[in-house]
Design a protein around this nucleic acid. Structure first.
Length: 580
RNA sequence: GCCAGCGUAGCUCAGUGGUAGAGCAGCGGUUUCGUAAACCGCCGGUCGGUGGUUCGACUCCACUCGCUGGCUCCA
């Protein structure tokens, strides 16, 4: 069977499972009101309004009821009814009535199975007996129609597969993914911490995490200089008036922290880096000959994020964007954006990310500027993506208030998407701040501005990196690249001699000179995911060799020190994502 | 922010109204060892915080801080 057809069948089964769950809920909670219950990746959900909050203990009860229904093999029966009749049918179901009203046409379809009738387009499986392996996974609150202003319903999530084996595999996969969670690994590998005492969403980078960040930042700086960026620094606070001029005060206030009083003036902590760059641009009269001008900054910003959305390093309240603002002529936008997209893709490639999504985000509900400007900017972005022949999707209404954007989203261990690199065209700020250049014609023209990151933020990028590699970083990024493990104290001198030699080649190395057994030292180096372990004993000392063990567990045998160094250096220089 | 759950030693976790327990880590010894945990001993907690109920609270209640999974929102 073709995969596509299989997928459709699986999706149908999952959707039917949601109906069966609804029937079970109806049986247990008479008077339940029903929202919607679609199939989703790996399973399904259904939203309910219930007389009491669900607790996790309710899930087994509902699941047991579902199994009864499935065992009864009751048939799914499709029926087309006119809207009047449907309204009659769902007289006590306000959410369904709302849906009926919104549906086009004069008739709607309903599906019945057992005692449950649902408004539904279908299709469904023939009978409840076709639903094979199901498990309810969690309860959650969810706004009706996904709108904060609507009432919150209770959502039950479930997963469903064709066989018990597939379900078990899925659950095992989740367990494996949990081991790669950056919050867990961050602690285990001593990379970073967050503290109640300091405040939620504020990251403390420990030496090893900070070291990785430094390596990434150094690499980032080198690549940016190569690409014609000027690296700058700007202050972390600025007068609130600046943010009023920019429009942030109107359009972005909910994400900004309250002003602080300095000498009777209100200042705020910056939520974005752009304004400083604009001020710098405006310190001189700029000629068209000087454009594009590219100001890059690893700029730390602070944004208020609602408490429920914080997540390890991936969603925090203080973070450092690998930001840059390109000031150019409108006719240069396309070329500049193309270069940026290429740079972002190069970064993804270098860090080993292959599974990402490209999105074109269009005009949001709250926006600054005119429709025409938005259309032009969106068109320019689209054209770049088309020309580069990249696969992308449109994310309607997801642009920033000042312009449309191209986003690259990365997956975490559990498959959740996180926005990383972003490229945003902006005609708004140049207008508000009167950012100009002198054209060939000797007249002033407004510049076009491109805001962009090619990693996203150091925090979120680190989170994705940790999860992508499960903490086993590529050699060039590993905080400790080689652990030297002397077997007995008499090997210490030789171990330190090798340490010096590796260090001279710029290799990050650590001698485990504790009076512990070799097995323990290997175990700990292994758990720290150190790529190379150099075991040193009598044999190695006598032959001036090292015995190389990889973190994969592979014993690469004995080799001369120079040979090991050469091998390492070439892997480090290549920034090889996987090779050891 | 909203819904639900959770918060016990540095970490992972037991402990369902009668003033806290394990393993690992740490510290002190002994051991000098060939590819993922040597052995012995010791230290360690105002049970997230504040208030309340109770003769008595880690346990029940309220508020608060934080965390987890969703929703909404975002780098």
């Amino acid at each position: 069977m073709a995969d596509e057809k299989k997928d459709v069948m699986l999706e149908t089964m999952r959707h039917s499972a949601s109906h069966v769950m609804a029937e079970a809920v109806q049986a247990i909670f008479p008077g339940a009101k029903f929202g919607i219950g679609p199939a989703i990746e790996d399973g399904f959900y259904y939203d309910f309004e219930l007389p009491r909050p669900l607790v996790p203990d309710d899930l087994p009860t509902i699941e047991a009821k579902m199994k009864e229904i499935i065992a009864s093999k009751s048939s799914f029966i499709r029926e087309e009814v006119d809207k009047a009749k449907a309204c009659q049918l769902f007289i006590s179901q306000p959410y369904k009535l709302e849906l009926i009203e919104e549906l086009p046409g004069s008739t709607v379809t309903v599906y019945k199975q057992g005692s449950f009738v649902d408004l539904c387009r279908g299709p469904h499986v023939e009978s409840a007996g076709d639903i094979k392996a199901v498990k309810l996974t969690r309860v959650a609150g969810a706004y009706w129609k996904g709108d904060e202003k609507c009432p919150m319903l209770q959502r039950i999530y479930g997963v469903a597969f064709n066989t018990k084996v597939e379900l078990d595999n899925y659950l095992a996969r989740l367990e494996e993914a949990a081991k790669r969670d950056h919050r867990k690994l961050g602690k285990e590998l001593d990379l970073f911490s967050l503290h109640d005492e300091a405040g939620a969403g504020l990251v403390h980078w420990h030496p090893k995490g900070a070291l990785i960040r430094h390596i990434i930042e150094d690499f980032w700086k080198v690549e940016h200089r190569k690409k014609g960026y000027d690296i700058v620094y700007t202050p972390h606070i600025a007068k609130v008036d600046l943010w009023k001029t920019s429009g942030h005060w109107d359009f972005y206030r909910e994400n900004m922290y309250s002003p602080m009083d300095i000498d009777g003036q209100d200042y705020i902590v910056k939520p974005m880096n752009c304004l400083g760059h604009i001020l710098m641009y405006k310190t001189q009269l700029r000629s068209y000959r000087n454009l594009p001008l590219r100001y890059a900054e690893l700029g730390t910003v602070y944004r208020y994020e609602r408490s429920g959305v914080l997540h390890g390093l991936a969603r925090v309240r203080g973070f450092t964007q690998d930001d840059a603002h390109i000031f150019c002529r409108p006719d240069q936008i396309e070329a500049e954006v193309t270069e940026v997209v290429n740079l972002a893709l190069f970064m993804m490639e270098t860090f080993g990310f292959h599974d990402y999504e490209l999105l074109l985000s269009t005009q949001p509900a709250k926006y600054a500027g005119t429709m025409q400007i938005w259309e032009e900017a969106t068109g320019a972005l689209r054209k770049v993506l088309e020309n580069l022949k990249l696969k992308y999707e449109v994310d309607p209404g997801e642009g920033v208030f000042y312009g449309p954007k191209i986003d690259i989203k990365l997956r975490d261990a559990l498959g959740r998407l996180w926005q990383g690199p972003t490229i945003q065209v902006d005609f708004n700020l140049p207008q508000r701040f009167d950012v100009n250049y002198i054209g060939e014609d000797g007249l002033e023209h407004q510049v076009a501005m491109v805001h962009r990151t090619v990693l996203g933020s150091m925090e979120r990028f680190m989170a994705c990196l940790i999860e992508h590699y499960g903490g086993a970083f590529p050699v060039w990024l590993s905080p400790v690249q080689a652990a030297i493990i002397p077997i007995a104290d008499r090997h210490l001198d030789y171990a330190h001699k090798i340490e010096d030699e590796l260090r001279e080649h710029g290799i990050r190395v650590q001698v485990d000179d504790r009076s512990e057994r070799m097995n323990l030292k290997i175990r700990e180096a292994q758990m720290d995911k150190v790529p190379y372990m150099l075991v040193i004993g009598d044999k190695e000392m006598a032959s001036s060799h090292v015995s190389l063990r990889m973190r994969t567990g592979e014993d690469a045998g004995s080799m001369a020190i120079a040979e090991f160094i050469n091998r390492m250096i070439s892997i480090i220089n290549a920034k090889s994502p996987d090779e050891l």
